[in-house]
Design a protein around this nucleic acid. Sequence first.
DNA 1: TTGTAAGCGTTATCAT
DNA 2: ATGATAACGCTTACAA
Lengths: 315, 315
Amino acid sequence: MAARAGVSKSLVSLVLQRSPRVSDQRRQAVLTAIQELDYRPSTAAVSLAGTRSRTIGVVLDDFRNQWFVDLLTGLRESLQDQGHRLVVADRFLNTGLDASPVEGFLSMRVEGIVIAGEPDTDLAIPASMPVVVAGGRATLPRADTVANDDRAGGRMAAEHLLSLGHTRIGFVGASSAASAERLTGLRTEVPTVVTSVMRGEPTEAAGAQAVGHLLDEHPDVTAVFAANDVMALGALSALADRGLRVPEDVSVMGYDDTPLAATAYVALTSIDDRSVEIGRGAGERLLARIADPTAPAQETLVEPRLVARRTTARR
Amino acid sequence: MAARAGVSKSLVSLVLQRSPRVSDQRRQAVLTAIQELDYRPSTAAVSLAGTRSRTIGVVLDDFRNQWFVDLLTGLRESLQDQGHRLVVADRFLNTGLDASPVEGFLSMRVEGIVIAGEPDTDLAIPASMPVVVAGGRATLPRADTVANDDRAGGRMAAEHLLSLGHTRIGFVGASSAASAERLTGLRTEVPTVVTSVMRGEPTEAAGAQAVGHLLDEHPDVTAVFAANDVMALGALSALADRGLRVPEDVSVMGYDDTPLAATAYVALTSIDDRSVEIGRGAGERLLARIADPTAPAQETLVEPRLVARRTTARR
DNA sequence: TTGTAAGCGTTATCAT
DNA sequence: ATGATAACGCTTACAA
């Protein structure tokens, strides 16, 4: 390549790395040659020859969870802007070629890994690899963690419903750590809360069933806090099926502030888990970890935020 | 590395490539050495030394459009299973480092690119790069295209509504090619269709507004076909605001069969655009294109499928 | 079937 | 400020 500019490869390399120790004249020569040849440095060669790959791997637990969109935004702000390339994979993206997404990342010699969501315990990440878990509750052995403060979110939900005059408050959840934490938060403010916690995944069906049980046992409940938006949606269905109006008869709120909740049609009051912030924080932690691999693992909690919409109203 | 197995690098290479011309004995030796050393071939070195990168780039127009999840599933089936690595980027994923996701892909020496959704016209893809547009209407110059047959979908919507006894049918859309095609399909079966097409993006708000106009002018409409699920959602809102029940007073259907439509709460009748199938098809086309770069660009239409749910009912 | 040696396109270390 | 040269970790003829 470099022949075109009439200089050595080393000089090209220096220009590419924006080194200041290059005369403007030579720099220009190289730059024009790059233009003319439509030249792009081979990432393969760069990461092979260089000391760092400048690449960070992001493992998504599931592309269907939309919160990763915001998480990525945050990660970009803290990582990409520092000159790192982001490579995204979900649990299945390159299986077959690799046993797990992590395999692929290791082959790519990524400098660090972000696990978005609940980490698979059997991910087999070498101890030397900097890792941060973003948004997941389960903490990986030596990994930093940046997550939503679910307990604070539960308290916020309580405060919101109390401020609207509700006293008979119900909770519907499932068997996840997040659900449990959110209930704990709620309970600190509303000790009298009545609950219906389903076993298994927090699905729409589970939400519908749970709210059914709840109302069977406590028909006087005037507000329901669901462990997440999907369950809240199930609750809305079940309530409608029973002829109960939301929010006139029963107030409903969810958690996560998913796009679903934000639609005008659903307009669900929810707790925003601040995914962008979590992403940014995770990126920063990862950089710190890379800079100092011996630093002790840290757990950061991000304060959530209430988003009031149409499904909650004054009693 | 290879020293551990007591063989040459070439032999290791052969084993890695699953070459049959290796004695079982040596192969075993290499395999155990790999285990013991926890060795992983460097993708950088592999793609630098090899003739092919075995990598395909996928450009998503927007991570917020969930249909790419299914598209990826299809792509995996046709591409990944053929030994190709998938690298996903959206329009913003690595900008800053690269001018566009395509820049990054070129640096990675991808063997082909899949544009998922509407292609940015200024993507600047070299003529020599195999490209297929998956799911987008706008066709890139020399690119193959695999897309949903929107016109057929429009006809299906018509048949569905007609079979339910509707005769006064309305359409709400926006200014996108897909919207126009879907209307065209509808119109072939229902020439008397009344329409309300908004300028701009097909958003929930646009859907609500459009259905408002439609009912103002044609209060006798008994069924509304929206250009997509999001607009349909807007329509549902507007209808509810007017005190009209769905489907008792008005039937509503959308297009795309998004996760939203599939929820029990919304239960929207929709047209499934068969994204998995589109992904698989796009992958196959891309492989064909790579195999024969001179082949003329082809346009493939995938037949959609009606998914009847609660928002449409017999008149 | 296995080994040898020459690259692949960069960066990095010395020189100059 | 610039260049020569040796890596980087593989693949791929070509030899043996």
